[in-house]
């Protein structure tokens, strides 16, 4: 009936073992308590079933010690689970500094993936093994959810913002990639795979593609196509601030607050330019909402990021 049945999907990321360990602990706790309760119900059912109509049981209105015990023990157990789970959660949330970046855009009903080196894939993600990978994700239409069971990771992509996730694959091979958030008629056909390769094989794959222009170069073209450089030129007295070297830095805003320039801030500045204007500039930039796609936005972002590394305009 069950051909090669496995309880968990394969463990193929650094996170998988940790999540499964907590999972097994929870199963142990659940099996213990449900067995205890079912055993007690069974024993009481046999021991105390009615034998005669007029037999009168002793009244027990309550028992403080017992009640305290069954309040405090579950509390302690759940707090253990909380601390344990929260530790994994915080670790799984913050990507390591050396993580390789990949950009993902979900749309009905496919995953569009861009590598910094310019490779683009549909419903496939090639990554090297033993290398942390950070995904920056957006959606063109509805909410989707990037789900790789073997990595024990899942993150929604939500319109209007970037979400990020990271993982480090520990095994080479092909792993299933799904959309876990119901996203319309052909939701169940939104199927892909993650291909984890040895670093050498991955390099081969990188150089083998047809699209070999790095993402930042495509981004620079888009930057010019939308005429961004007319205002954001790297010279004094431009209408807009220079974008050289700003990525990852904290900048001052017109209203006196400051903000760290990250993907989300760039996205917001393109789509809602007047919401967080840099200090010393006027809110004159028009919105590019509806003109620039999520895919192009990510390319432009990659270009601005590359400027931080010492590139020039």
């Amino acid at each position: 009936m069950f051909k090669e049945f496995k309880f968990f999907p394969e463990q193929a990321s650094t996170l998988a073992g940790e999540v499964d360990l907590l999972f097994y602990f929870l199963i142990a706790v659940s099996v213990f308590f449900s067995s205890l309760i079912f055993f007690l119900i069974y024993v009481f059912a046999v021991r105390y079933r009615r034998r005669s109509e007029d037999e009168k049981p002793q009244q027990i209105p309550g028992m403080l010690k017992l009640e305290l015990a069954w309040s405090i023990i579950p509390l302690i157990l759940t707090m253990i689970v909380f601390v344990w789970g929260a530790t994994i959660y915080f670790d799984s949330y913050t990507p390591p500094k050396d993580a390789m970046e990949v950009y993902v855009v979900g749309k009905q009903w496919m995953w569009h993936i861009q590598h910094p080196t310019g490779q683009r894939e549909i419903n496939e993600l090639h990554i090297p093994v033993n290398q942390p990978v950070k995904l920056t994700m957006a959606t063109e239409d509805v909410i989707h959810s990037f789900y790789v069971p073997a990595f024990r990771v899942k993150k929604d992509v939500v319109p209007g913002r970037y979400t990020t996730m990271w993982f480090e694959a520990t095994k080479t091979g092909e792993f299933h990639l799904f959309c876990a958030e119901y996203c319309g008629t052909k939701h169940s056909a939104m199927i892909g795979k993650v291909v984890v390769q040895e670093p050498a094989a991955y390099q081969d794959w990188l150089s083998g593609g047809t699209q070999n222009e790095p993402l930042e170069v495509i981004g620079e073209k888009k930057f010019q196509q939308f005429a961004c450089q007319t205002c954001h030129a790297d010279k004094p007295n431009s209408r807009g601030p220079s974008l050289v070297g700003i990525f990852g830095e904290s900048i001052k805003l017109q209203n006196g607050q400051s903000v760290v320039v990250d993907e989300e801030y760039i996205r917001e500045s393109v789509l809602e330019p007047n919401s967080k204007v840099a200090a010393g500039y006027k809110p004159v930039m028009p919105t590019f909402k509806g003109q620039v796609s999520e895919v192009s936005l990510l390319q432009i972002t990659a270009y601005i990021k590359s400027l931080a590394k010492g590139g020039s305009n």
């Binding site: 940790e18 999540v19 907590l22 999972f23 929870l26 706790v29 659940s30 759940t78 689970v81 909380f82 344990w84 789970g85 929260a86 994994i88 959660y89 799984s92 959810s145 789900y147 069971p149 024990r152 990771v153 899942k154 993150k155 876990a180 958030e181 119901y182």
Partner: peptide, 14 residues
């Protein structure tokens, strides 16, 4: 409790 526990929930959600 599996769902309350964030790390596990992320795996079994949906």
């Amino acid at each position: 409790i599996f769902m309350a526990s964030n790390a596990v929930d992320i795996f079994i959600h949906d």
